[in-house]
C-alpha cells in the first residue's frame, strides 16, 4: 500500500477515495457527505485550522492525497462531537477525523512536530511499556520533549502544582524508578502486538 504514497493521483477520480475507504476508520462514509457545511460551521476549532471536515471530505473526493494526509486539521479535533450530532447525513465525522489522523501517522505523512501527534505518541509509548500510564514519567516526558533547557523551564513553571499534588498524595515521586506495572506485562505486550497485526492486516499496512 505504501506505493500509494508515490501514486500520482488523477483529479476527481475515485482512487484516493477508495484508498480512504479501505484504510481509514469509517472512511466509507466520506462519499456520503453532501457538502452542506454544517460541520464546518459547528466545529469550535473551525477558525483555527486550515481544513474543515467538509473541506477534507471534498479534498479526498478531489484526489488531493498529499494535502489531506499532510493536513494538521484532523489533529486539532477535540472530539467534542458537535459535528456528529449535527451532520444531516449522519457521518461519524469525529471518528473519520481520528481515522484520517491515524492513517496519516502510520504512513508518516502527518505533519512533523504537530503537538497532538507528539503527545499521542508519548502517551502510547508510556502506556505500552508497563500496561499502565506512569503519570510522573509522562509529565516529565512532555516537559522535556523539546529539549533539556525547555524541560527545566516547563518543570519550574509547574512547580507549585507538582508540590500541591505531592502534598495531597496524588503524585508518588517513587514512580520515577520503575513505578507500578501490570501483573502480566508480557501478556499485555502480546495482546497489543496481536491487535496491531490484526489492524494492519485489515488496512493492508502489514
Amino acid at each position: 500500500m505504501t506505493t500509494a504514497n508515490q501514486n500520482a493521483l488523477a483529479k476527481y477520480k475515485n482512487n484516493f477515495l477508495k484508498e480512504v475507504e479501505a484504510n481509514v476508520e469509517d472512511g466509507h462514509w466520506v462519499k456520503m457527505c453532501m457538502q452542506c457545511g454544517v460541520c464546518a460551521g459547528s466545529c469550535p476549532l473551525g477558525p483555527h485550522w486550515e481544513h474543515s471536515p467538509q473541506k477534507l471530505f471534498m479534498m479526498i473526493r478531489a484526489g488531493k492525497r498529499e494535502e489531506v494526509l499532510g493536513s494538521d486539521s484532523m489533529w486539532m479535533c477535540t472530539s467534542c462531537y458537535n459535528c456528529i450530532v449535527r451532520c444531516p447525513r449522519k457521518l461519524p465525522i469525529t471518528h473519520i477525523m481520528h481515522g484520517l489522523a491515524n492513517y496519516a501517522h502510520r504512513l508518516d505523512l502527518a505533519p512533523k512536530g504537530q503537538p497532538t501527534r507528539d503527545i499521542a505518541k508519548l502517551f502510547w509509548d508510556n502506556l505500552a511499556k508497563t500496561g499502565r500510564v506512569n503519570e510522573l514519567k509522562f509529565s516529565l516526558a512532555m516537559y522535556f520533549k523539546d529539549g533539556f533547557g525547555q524541560g527545566v523551564k516547563n518543570a519550574m513553571a509547574m512547580q507549585a502544582t507538582g508540590l500541591g499534588l505531592l502534598k495531597a498524595k496524588r503524585l508518588n515521586p517513587m514512580e520515577i524508578i520503575g513505578g507500578h506495572k501490570c501483573k502480566d506485562i508480557s501478556g499485555i505486550k502480546k495482546m497489543i502486538a496481536k491487535a496491531r497485526e490484526i489492524e494492519d492486516r485489515r488496512r493492508g499496512l502489514a
Binding site: Y12, N14, L17, K31, M32, M34, Q35, M58, R61, A62
Partner: peptide
C-alpha cells in the same frame, strides 16, 4: 448514488 460511488462536486 453516493453509496454507489458517484462523486458529487459543487
Amino acid at each position: 448514488a453516493q453509496q454507489k460511488g458517484v462523486i458529487f462536486t459543487k
